[in-house]
Design a protein around this nucleic acid. Sequence first.
DNA 1: GGATGTGAATGTCTTCACAGCT
DNA 2: AGCTGTGAAGACATTCACATCC
Lengths: 206, 206
Amino acid sequence: MKKISESTVRRLSGYLRLLQEADAAGMSTISSEELARRGGTTSAQVRKDLSVFGSFGKRGLGYPVPDLLHELRDILGVNRTWNVALIGAGKIGSALFSYRDFQRRGFHIRAVFDADPAKIGQHWGGLTVQPDERLEASLRSERIDMAIVAVPAEAAQAVADRAVRAGVRAVLNFAPVALQLPDSVAYRAVDMAVELEGLAFALNGQ
Amino acid sequence: MKKISESTVRRLSGYLRLLQEADAAGMSTISSEELARRGGTTSAQVRKDLSVFGSFGKRGLGYPVPDLLHELRDILGVNRTWNVALIGAGKIGSALFSYRDFQRRGFHIRAVFDADPAKIGQHWGGLTVQPDERLEASLRSERIDMAIVAVPAEAAQAVADRAVRAGVRAVLNFAPVALQLPDSVAYRAVDMAVELEGLAFALNGQ
DNA sequence: GGATGTGAATGTCTTCACAGCT
DNA sequence: AGCTGTGAAGACATTCACATCC
């Protein structure tokens, strides 16, 4: 199978959201031109992105919204449920937890961990914040697929290593540090400082 | 001046952080090899990235840490202070606000807004959460450079438009929607769903 | 000796443009 | 007539490899 670039996958996520909106709005068909306009890209790009996975459109008409929606869910792997653990129950962890859109999209938070005794034992939704020591046991018993790392920078590499040893195959990192993980683990990082510095750079050159 | 790609700028942010760590650790010099290893790239890439802006290294030795740190701050535009407004005082807004690393890095939150009467008037640090109606006036009087959009998806485009009309030149968007803004405005988006779907895609193909 | 800086080569991504369906 | 699907061209980014200098 052909290798798909990260930017392509990011755009596919964008198309998925646009199609959900179009579907909710009752549109039965949508053109590459329309997807491009709303997603901030070009129609040729949209067609190339989709053509890698198949021919979903009808010439002269565009793409049937419900079908393409289904296909994109398949492609991205969100037609199923993923078990997610939240490591770190601080400000960011709590904001992420209450972002219920996750659940709706099939990412179910099954466990929450923290090292702070004041946090341990708190009830979050139907879950109890577990102590750091329970990490390995709980990740295994809950068959966690993905770990969201939301601990201080100093602690991030250590918990990520432990999560990977406990069978986690994907990590989403919010700590401001570049984690070193085996290539077999899918990795994404969200870093506010990087984004703000990117904006500063853009403003700096006028 | 040569156009710099977004991925280059992202890597420069990474080098900046690594240099801060190296500086704190008392290292006086660092090689492209070392920066590459810690930053997850290659030494040739590091040298190419830096060479666009000048010759900062010494052959046979590497890069002088304090000098390169200073240069990178200049390049990225973080040797000065930026005035930031936080639009939306919900869970994400509050997590972002308390992320004091911003201040340390020169991004000062000068104003917070929300449309919810229960939030308006709350004291956050030295700031008072202001009503939505005050947006334009306050953005102008505080000379806000950047707006962080942390409102629900439905409200995001409208507040972003108003912020831009009030003179904001950069937008960091946390709402799960693609904002349409003039090219003159620097734009970055952080979207949890996109990241999680990227991980799901990676796991899906084994 | 050792690591930078950089053209040249290679690889990847995007845009063009049009044949081919509906 | 309209819009997709796709080779070919073009633009862009990364890697190689080595002359250059401390």
